[in-house]
Amino acid sequence: MVSGYGKLQIINGVDIELNKGELVTIIGPNGSGKSTLVKTIIGLVPSWSGKIIINEKLDITGMKPYDIVTKQVPINYVPQVNNVFPTLTIEENLLLGALPRKKDPKEKIQEDMEKIFEIFPRLKERLSQKAALLSGGERQMLALGRALMSNPDILILDEPTAALAPVLADEIFNKIIELKKLGLSILLVEQRATRALKISDRGYVLVSGKVAFEDKAENLINNEKVGELYLGKR
């Protein structure tokens, strides 16, 4: 299989590429359109022009989210807030994540669930508890687990560490590194720019809906202008 590859152009003209097995971070100031960008990719926000292409030929532009995830497009998305179903139990949340894989047998799904419990052992302890009762960090883990249950190749994470304590954020970042090692391509949108860039391969800096900088992650960290503007370095 040829490596996964995505391209997107929204109204302000953004070109983004994600190669297979890569961890790409999008950073930018508030209101620069980071969340809108990923929402457009997944189909929650209609795209005005441009194309979103997966695997070089599969065009998912203008599709509805459930079409995108059910038509065997190996992509999933974790929103910034409201990323779990609060009144459903953890088990039900995870099972719903596996909904796009209608063809897979139940044993396979159970197996995958066990794998997710290996990555997030805390979820297993509270299997029959309602998701509304989880703490912030556990909620993010559940959201990640829910997305992983669909067995995606591409994972889009929208600020997974927002409103989390630094310790928990570290934990989430570690989990993301683990996921990357499993061979997933990850598109990460982050506010904690330095921290995110340290673990990623490449990075984009988005300013008012346009890509201002695009480079390897370490270059971006060392880029003085970027540092001055968004990383808080003087």
Binding site: I42, L44, P65, Y66, T70, Y77, P79, N82, V84
Partner: peptide, 9 residues
């Protein structure tokens, strides 16, 4: 919205 992302029609 989340239901749609999860593949629910």
């Amino acid at each position: 919205d989340l239901a749609q992302i999860s593949g629910i029609n």
